[in-house]
Amino acid sequence: MSIVSFLLIIFTSLFFTGIVIRTKSIFSGRKGPGFFQPLKDIRRLFRKGAVYSKTTSFIFQIAPSIYFASVLMAIFMVPFGNQPGIISFQGDFIFFAYALALGKFFIIISALDTGSSFEGMGASREALYSLLVEPAFFILMGSFALLTGHTSFYEIFGSLHFGSYISYGEGTLAAIVLVFIALIENSRMPVDDPKTHLELTMVHEVMILDNSGFDLGLILYSTNLKFAMYGALIANFFLTPGYEWYYSLPIFIGVQIVFAVIVGTVESFMARFRMNHNPQYIFMLTSISLLIFIGVLILKKFV
């Protein structure tokens, strides 16, 4: 049964970017591409041949696979309400973060492998922004470890229950932090604009300029997976124990859809920040997670 969350995440990942794109086209009054266009793009890429740069080495060839595998590995650890993930052990969220970091490391060095100044620039930004996100995630998980007394995703979410106003506030703030983390980790607005046409203003897109064919497909699909994965984490805050599957399943899907619509809405109504404002913006997440921590201290009657 522990495979449920994995299957659900894979399932939602198929629609996620479709919903984002539909939201954006509705808001901008366009007819827009179809629901399955992102998936069709990826399928097309999987069938294409590839062009490799002369400068690159085996790092460039292996990096997309590692990136994809690291995201899959992280998904293995995400629980679904009362069901643990495929892998669950004490401190699994540490492994979760570090597996994702491994993928990021390789995608960064594969960008440097091309020897292009643009891709180096993207790599530098990606490394910087993802390092700034890390503390927020760990403070968040630390706070919930304190609140519930457990140290794995499954046990934390399994024993999380909201009773007082503060705890509702905690849940909401945590969901907000995770939405922001997901936006930053997936290089979306307002940190990065995936649809920009100028390489100088890109972060993630410029890193993968030289990737093509199957590798590019893997990278793009990993983005979908990552979205669905963070969506599943957020959904877990609302899948408090005691719910039967016919409640939790709609809640899960509902949260994912709302999350996708939020992403689309943010992208429709916000402009990308100036690059030098991004670090401040990302640090804000750390302060929100510290708020959560203080809330937990109050809940535990420490303060």
Partner: peptide, 25 residues
């Protein structure tokens, strides 16, 4: 990682592979 890389290599070995200079925008 090994499985992903193996599948990827199997599939892309059937496709055409070209080597070009790095894309200079």
């Amino acid at each position: 990682i090994a499985i992903t890389y193996f599948v990827r290599t199997k599939i892309s070995s059937a496709r055409t592979i070209t080597v070009q200079p790095t894309w200079g925008c």
